[in-house]
Design a protein around this nucleic acid. Structure first.
Lengths: 190, 190
DNA sequence: CTCGCATACTCAACTTGTTGACTAGGTCGA
DNA sequence: TCGACCTAGTCAACAAGTTGAGTATGCGAG
């Protein structure tokens, strides 16, 4: 029931096709709401029949036609209503954490490799987020931006994503050193 | 396919009933893998038929009987195999972030209230995690613990939970001040 | 002595999310 | 000019997750 709201929040940035949304989700919303393109297309259809969004078919030369979706008044209202509701606590699923929890009786080397990979991935995300942030701010300082901009929501969620990934990097590094020492101890005990 | 692994990782701490697991999940695993009790019971049944765990019925006086599950050799092996596999990136779903993203065209006061609530909730989690950490460490310093303990996995995942919640608290506080200033600006514009 | 909470589950119905395959034209580099 | 990748989707099948209700007993507070 709540992918809808994420989609509507994304549509506040302007009309978009399913394909656009898939990319937009991947870039910024994925940080707190992941989904597959298929989920998006299915949900968009339902939202259209529910009157929350409306589609305008755009004929394109040299590209397949696309359907540009935009929020209707009803959609905006539903989104506002959603912001007023109490929200369920965060749901997280991280296989890597499960693997770390079981690392002591599993494949230590493989877990370390996964940690290294995750660390790199998080670092890559950080640079992408930094770029996005610079783009949002433009020439302005953060102070100026917060004073002038009509929307601060996307900026705040971006900050959350940034600090989450930075935290990830720190934790991966820490866990790696701990597991490395452990490996050394097990290889050459006492 | 992966709740299984979380359950098996939890069973490394020793045999447990579905009810125990539900509580254990709530206390520590929930941090990176949330699920409802129903999911647990269903999955436990399947895991039993798959031979990953085995159940021993414990007759209790003055309490309903319970089924104590423990890992089989096959289960341990499956868990080790899982740690060796590559892992899917984290999946997060946070309605609050969706609401913050849409806050500018939604109910600002309600979003601020949600942020305050989330902040308190995170603070409560932090104290619980701190207690768990103190319990894990016992009389030892972290150094001593990491050198002696047979399992460091649960400690590392606990650290991740702690830093995640601390980060949550910081971000909520930051967002609140930003939204408060914004509210002030909108109430009394230039 | 009753109300509500804790233990310890089960069942059924429903909604979400995931995977894989398929269509079909366009562009770009080797 | 061949293969690979990008745009812009659709369809079907399945796996996973959520919700709500029901069962039964015991314990302690008011």
């Amino acid at each position: 029931m709540s992918l809808r709201n994420a989609v509507m929040a994304a549509l506040l940035d302007g009309a978009a096709s399913g394909y656009d949304l898939a990319k937009a989700f991947d870039a910024s919303v994925a940080n707190f709401w992941m989904c597959t393109p298929q989920q998006l297309y299915r949900e968009l259809d339902r939202m259209e029949t529910d009157g929350l969004i409306e589609a305008r078919t755009v004929e394109q030369e040299r590209r397949p036609n696309k359907r540009l979706f935009s929020l209707t008044a009803a959609g905006l209202e539903a989104l506002a209503a959603f912001t007023a509701e109490p929200h369920k606590p965060t749901a997280i699923r991280d296989e890597l954490l499960v693997a770390v929890m079981a690392a002591d009786s599993g494949d230590l080397e493989a877990v370390k490799a996964s940690l290294r990979e995750r660390k790199q991935w998080a670092e890559a995300k950080i640079t992408r987020y930094e770029r996005l942030k610079a783009k949002l701010l433009g020439e302005r300082t953060e102070e100026e931006f917060l004073a002038e901009a009509e929307r601060v929501g996307p900026y705040l969620t971006l900050l959350r994503g940034l600090s989450f990934e930075r935290d990830n990097v720190r934790w991966c590094a820490r866990s790696l050193t701990v597991l490395e020492r452990r490996g050394a101890r097990l290889d050459a005990p006492t």
